[in-house]
Nucleic acid binder design. Structure first.
Lengths: 208, 208
DNA sequence: CGCCGCTTTGAACGCTCGTTCAACGCTGTG
DNA sequence: CACAGCGTTGAACGAGCGTTCAAAGCGGCG
């Protein structure tokens, strides 16, 4: 709760977070200047220090913001009680949508090492929780016989990598909508590459 | 060829590159200081400027170094003329090995945007060439009926993302060898997650 | 030994950036 | 109108960094 302030300034804080996230994504944490973040909002950099103690706290808040949404996503999908493959598909679709349309490319790609050890530990702990949720889902699918056996840890890493990497090449002006990307990724990551049944997914849609 | 110097100083240059790559990976391009790179080699930062014009040129050389190896890899695998799935498997194994054991986590994760437009264009052009090689391989596999139909572009991105992301979580002191990671990734990325034949791969080895 | 070219040093410069802070509107209330 | 507080400003600071450069070290050859 030290993060929360008055309701009035809460909007301002998230405005700053969005601007900062964009700057961090483009130039990296150290490459983005506080002035750059402020200028994009037509405010002076001194003013930022009314809302945040320092630059590091802004980065930390960005991470918290993304993780909040991510964790919520996982929980929402879980309570629906669908079979693991359908849960996974929903997750991938939602995750891609989240990264591209809401966070504009800023999810887990932000610098972690720039955080001081105490804050770093907090973020890593939550990120690991997300990882564990994903692994559990994979393990469950394997136990159910839906998925071929494998190492859930490795597969979870591979999936997260594939999705997080999207931010590196995605161009909003490009030919592919975030929706189409999400479905392509879900098809591949869940359905796999080799021939076999494709039970639930929509049309294959090889959208060039 | 402006990159090459006398044979004597070539070793020194690559030493610097390794140190710089490690620093860039840990703290990002802007976060790593020139002094930090030099100190790791027990030399003064001023000395770096005898081998490189400036910091940016060091980053560029790092990219070139990685890309050289990557392109060579692709070519080597291609000339063997194996079927696409086996070529892909070799590629993934070699790529994982390359990133973890030789580049120590520094492949395509280095800051791109830190390069000035002219250098940036060169790097992107070569990276795109690698992408195209991978896509061609995927397309060929689909045409041959080895792979389920899909968008080669998206799948190539997903594969590159999964592999490049490894650098973000890999811990050399961890329980998994780079070899085991490579095989897990190859199994998943090529064999797919769903049940179906696993033609060529070795033992499934769910190495916890 | 004495010279020469390659390599290294260490100090200095200039600039950028994160952070601080006293002073200043602005807005609503008594 | 006077006051109070939140929000904002802009200037100033100090530190760190990339870069430069004149001078020194060093090794081999004549």
């Amino acid at each position: 709760m030290p993060v929360q302030q008055t309701p009035a300034s809460a909007d301002r804080r998230t405005e700053i977070l969005k601007s900062a996230a964009a700057a961090f994504r483009r130039r990296g944490y150290h490459g983005a200047s506080v002035d750059e973040i402020a200028s994009a909002l037509a405010m002076t950099k001194g003013n930022l220090y009314y809302y945040f103690r320092n630059k590091e706290e802004i980065l930390f808040a960005c991470h918290e913001y993304s993780l909040d949404i991510l964790v919520t996503l996982l929980d929402e999908v879980r309570v629906e009680g669908l079979p693991p493959d359908q849960q996974l598909r929903k997750l991938v679709l939602a995750f891609v949508h989240l990264i591209l349309d809401e966070l504009h490319g800023t999810a887990l790609t932000l610098d972690l090492q720039a955080l001081s050890p105490p804050l770093l530990r907090k973020v890593i702990a939550r990120r690991d929780a997300v990882d564990r949720g994903l692994r559990r889902l994979l393990q469950q699918g394997m136990d159910d016989g839906l998925f071929a056996p494998g190492d859930p840890k490795m597969i979870a890493f591979a999936m997260m990598g594939a999705v997080n990497w999207i931010a590196k090449w995605y161009d909003p002006a490009g030919p592919m909508t975030s929706q189409a990307i999400g479905e392509s990724f879900a098809d591949y990551l869940i359905g796999g590459l080799r021939r076999g049944g494709l039970p639930d997914s929509g049309p294959p849609a090889p959208a060039r």
